[in-house]
Simulated scan of single mutants.
Amino acid sequence: MKYTSRDKAVILLSDGTIFYGKSIGIKGTTHGELCFNTGVTGYQEIFTDPSYFGQIMLSTNAHIGNYGVHDDEVDSDGIKIAGLVCKNFSFHYSRPAASGSLYDYFEKNNLVVVSDVDTRALVSYIRDNGAMNAVISTDGKSIEELKSILNAVPDMNGLELASKVSVKEPYFYGNENATYKVAALDLGIKTNILRCLAERDCYVKVFPYNATYDQLKAFNPHGYFLSNGPGDPQPLHDVIEVAKELIASDKPVFGICLGHQIIALSQGVSTYKMFNGHRGINHPIMNVLTNRGEITSQNHGFAVNREEVEANENLEITHYHLNDQTVAGIRLKDKAVFSVQYHPESSPGPNDSKYLFDEFVNYMKTSKGTV
């Protein structure tokens, strides 16, 4: 471990507000939408979640790095966040099972990190003023240089990012002799979603985001899955058209997060950029069908228009967020098509939402004879 520098670091927000911190020793400048996550644990899963591509993560937890990293706690092929802002960065870790330190992990990936920040003040500012673009720098660039960089950063609203994180070629996951075959459209799919499907006797073929319906159909699957992912769903016009074809096939379709938004758009329901979004591991959800609450892991900055869902004769709301009443789940009334705006695979302590994978498998079991 070669950290020696504790140089001053800068956080410049798009509205001109400036916060200061310290570098952990990795020099550089990076930019993206600054958003905060309230999770106390699971930081490695957050850093490797493709849904965070192009975003600077602001952690509300006071300590980051204290339990190191582990090879099994990644949700993609590498770090996806653009940078990290935190209060206390732990260069040493105490977990015996860890495979290394978070510092070494970041150094290997050349990730820019600003620590020793008054994160309570910064989170409060973002909460009051909304998620916004920012640039963070640990290499001594002037404020004027940073302003020039920040002016060129595109707004997340209208930004298509699924193509940046999707696989380039199809690949398989699970046991090829499994009972069920699932064709998954990769918009930024998390590895743990694939694990959850494989654990339920599913063999998954993962397709690039721009795969056609005919390519997905050729796998002869029992069901289709639309994954999570980063960015605005509305620019994904071809994906929305593919979703329409998947739904028309009368085979089960399951969507998570970005996939949930794509299903809504395919049914004529619009989406919108949220003021701050939901990012954390303790978000309360109400299941309308069971009248039971769920504690969920969430990571999204866009949401489905509730009024339009309620006005759509083909859709019904199955889940909603208890904090702000936003749509957290929908299903088609006459088809085995459903989706949620949270991560049932994440298990943020409780396993409240993993039943959704079981429901998907049950749908496929019921329609298995149609393959």
Rank of each mutant, 00 (worst) to 15 (best):
I247D: 02
Y224A: 01
N228H: 11
I262M: 11
I240H: 01
N314G: 08
V337S: 00
C202Q: 06
S297H: 07
T296I: 08
F254I: 05
K333L: 12
N276Q: 14
N228E: 14
L216C: 01
E310A: 10
E294H: 15
E313S: 15
D250G: 05
P233M: 01
T290Y: 09
E294A: 14
N314R: 12
Y209I: 02
I317H: 04
L315K: 04
P235A: 03
T318Y: 07
E241M: 05
G268T: 08
K273P: 14
V206F: 03
K333E: 06
V242P: 00
Q234W: 04
I295G: 08
A328V: 02
L289H: 11
N220A: 11
L216M: 06
R292Q: 15
K205P: 11
I247C: 00
T212M: 02
H260Y: 13
S270I: 08
G259W: 08
N305I: 06
A336G: 07
R306N: 06
I317W: 04
T326P: 10
N314V: 01
Y224R: 02
I285V: 14
L236R: 07
F275T: 15
P230F: 08
E310K: 11
R306W: 03
H260D: 11
K333D: 07
Q215H: 07
H278S: 08
G231K: 02
A198C: 07
G329W: 03
E294I: 15
G277M: 03
R331Y: 02
F219T: 10
K251I: 04
T296W: 09
T271Q: 07
H278Q: 10
I330F: 03
V327I: 03
Q325G: 12
R292I: 14
H278D: 07
L289G: 09
D238F: 07
